[in-house]
Simulated scan of single mutants.
Amino acid sequence: MNKTSPPTVLEAPRCVWPAGATLGEGTLWSVREQALYWVDILERRLHRFDPAGGERKSWDFDEEITALAERANTPGLIVTLRRGFALFDPAASEVPPKYLHQPEPELPANRFNDGKCDAEGRFWGGTMDFACEAPTGALYRFDPDGRCSRHDQGFAVTNGPTWSQGGGTMYFNDTVTGRIYAYDFDMAAGTLANKRQWLRFARGDGLPDGMTTDAAGRLWIAHWGGACVSCHDPVSAEELCRVKLPTSHITNCAFGDADLCTLYISSATSGLTPAQREAEPEAGALFAVRIDSPGLPAPLFGG
């Protein structure tokens, strides 16, 4: 087994948007627009950051918006709202967007959380208990033709997924238990098998939140309550390095900029005590840090 070499973090993280997000999430770099999209789930807001000009733009929604991906064949985004999958075109700004599918009408206390597209253009999104307690969450695959299928269940809070280099493994987070699972992933069929624990965070090191994969196949994982993003070998799960942040609740990350060597990192104020809020004035900000090697372009939704 070849050991993955550690990356080099070239600078301290910079705050690029002091948004004070209640629950920043959903980081997505648009290669097409050369801009970073992200969301504030609990404030029901979509953000867009243009690093070249520093422009910031936001859209308000009627309910929680939790994750997103660009569409391959037309402008706009597929998004997960509180209850399911929808399309949204930022240029048209039609709010609320129309639902494509709502897979859990029998679970009104659930909401969607994190999600991403696989390399074949299918959107994978997870649901969770809004109170972060009951194991009522599940993992869904939404296909470009509108079909929706459930592939795992029994989670209180879901985060991820991300894939290995080449796509043969999918990683998915059971955040409340601190576990990251790996599944064998059949890219052609879009199916999962051989679920196993790949990593469990040590007590006191936070909980695994959003994550991404870089071009070398390494996983970068945000630590809720751990004030960092850690980088791991995709096979052994060995930690290779970590990016320390000036606030506790780190929620997601995505590589961006023209060379895909800037790691954008979202954070949250939710769950912080008044003392923590005072000690962490950049809580809820969007951060950026340069890495010596690139990430991967985010796959596009095929619909």
Rank of each mutant, 00 (worst) to 15 (best):
P281M: 13
E238W: 02
R44Q: 15
E63K: 09
A21N: 15
D50L: 11
L42Q: 08
W29P: 10
C228Q: 09
Q165L: 15
R32Y: 00
R71K: 12
E104R: 08
N159C: 03
G271V: 01
F172Y: 15
D62H: 09
P208I: 07
Y37E: 05
V243K: 04
Y183L: 05
G54W: 10
D60M: 05
G190Q: 10
G26A: 15
G256P: 10
P105D: 09
D40V: 06
S58P: 02
L272F: 08
Q276E: 15
G226V: 11
A202N: 14
E70R: 01
G225R: 08
T247L: 01
E238R: 15
L199H: 12
E43W: 07
T247A: 13
I180Q: 05
P90K: 06
E63C: 03
G284A: 07
Y183D: 11
G125E: 01
L81T: 06
G178W: 00
D259G: 02
Y171D: 13
W17R: 06
P144N: 07
D184Q: 01
W124T: 10
A134Q: 14
S30D: 08
R242K: 14
G295E: 00
V289Y: 11
M211I: 00
V243E: 02
E11H: 04
L286A: 12
P144L: 12
T269S: 08
G167P: 04
L286C: 13
A298Y: 07
R56N: 03
G178C: 08
C15N: 14
S30M: 07
T273D: 13
P208S: 03
R277T: 03
N110V: 10
M170K: 04
L23S: 08
S5A: 14
T175D: 09
T251D: 13
L286Q: 12
G217M: 04
H232P: 03
L28W: 10
